[in-house]
Amino acid sequence: MKRRNFLKNSFLALASVSFCQSGFAKVFEQKTSNFELSILTQNPELAKILVQTILKPFFPNKVLSFQEFFLPQKVVGDLVWVENFSLVNYKNQKTEIEKALFKVAQKLKLPSLQEKPTLIKISDLEHQKGSFAKVTSQSQGTKIFELNKDFQSEISGVTFEVKNNKIKILHSTCKHKICTQPGEISQTNEKLICIPNCVSIQIFGKVKNEFDAFTL
């Protein structure tokens, strides 16, 4: 069960959505130039189907980031639509995208109290500014940090520092401290791993050099 939850927590989906240039898609191309959609629901499977069927015409020729996070508590679920760094109230239904989001919310019966929901985040990777670190702990799930803000933090016995758009492990409670040896990382898909504490740190987002994986 624990492994299953970890699996669920750490799924990261990037959807490459390409459509033919239909008039419908063209109309909304400019309006979805920079966005992030968050859906907090206890029915993530239905949410994914709705995203694919109702919302995908609004994302023509984009590379979308799909992220799923399992939340163990009881919270009020809803949709949050952020466009060009501004929160948009979809309930106004002024635009086509707001109407579509309202339809999704209705089908998911949101907003309402959700037991152990899943947070689905969909964002436009192409327009993301800066880069991020995804810190995944087998016991504490996944947390995302921006790399443009210097700070220190600790997760599952691993203390890490973000400084000058780079991240490094300062200290670990593990036996051999191998995870502290590689120093700082800053390239897409670069990783720092503490195997004994089951913690991984990965860079993603827009940075200078982009790799699919590293061999070492």
Binding site: F11, S18, F19
Partner: peptide, 30 residues
């Protein structure tokens, strides 16, 4: 026809074989 295809890239990592094993799958069905 190629551009109409919707592809999803899923990433997953798990501690196996004494190391971190990383999976990336790109497919048309989530």
């Amino acid at each position: 026809s190629f551009s109409q295809e919707t592809l999803f890239q899923l990433e997953h990592e798990e501690f196996l074989l004494g190391t971190l094993v990383e999976f990336k799958v790109i497919h048309d069905d989530f």
